[in-house]
Amino acid sequence: MATETDTHSEGGLVFHPLDQFIPKSLFGDGPIAWYSITNVTLWLAIAVACVFLLMVMGTSGRKIIPSRLQSVAELIYGFIYKMVEDVCGKEGIKYFPYIMTLFLFILFANYLALIPMSYSPTSMIAVTAILGFGVFIAVTVLGFVLNGASFLGMFWMKDAPAVLRPIIAVIEVISYFVRPVSHSIRLAGNVMAGHAVIKVFAGFAALTLVSPVAILGITAIYGLEVLVAGIQAYVFTILTCVYLKDALHPHH
């Protein structure tokens, strides 16, 4: 709670890099209940609308020679389909719609968050934790359903020296349970860090002396964030595929 006093005593140069992540109720000022329509809801809805526009309206022509939107939609489809097929094998194709859902949601949420004054749902740890732990729980349940108790063999390295096996097993179990944490915090952290850094630079832009540098910095970081937004969606998706592969083929 140290910042509470610090930020207000600074006077001219005020940093509130995290204020952009405050959810605000769109209708009424009351406390935010679980059903309130907030700016989170708005930008999530816009993401759904964009997915709908791209994947449904874009492909409504069903043309053999695709229009621009249709070829973008087909490109994304082919990209994710190939990723699932390459990483998980033929058995993974069943789960392709779920992975596609994750990818498109994260991609659009990340890119929409780059619009100035917008809200970035993927920077909220609650949101990414649902995504990450959702993948974790789904993959674990799937692993036990498909492989039974032999799913636990994933932690027992048969080709390691016998002395090291229990130690490796402990490490493997820990790393298995760290997966959802790193999986979700990676996404939230990247998005949050980028947006917060932009806000910090924007705070420096208030000083006339350094404002050109600050604005150049904002531009550069924005470019980096455009890259990061795509890469993080890709990374989240491919890691989901990798975890799914572990559930489908636990013995490699």
């Binding site: 790193s182 990676r186 990374v235």
Partner: peptide
């Protein structure tokens, strides 16, 4: 990209 993601996650 997986390697980059793991390396970057620790920085995050």
């Amino acid at each position: 990209f997986i390697g980059l993601a793991f390396a970057e996650a620790l920085g995050i």
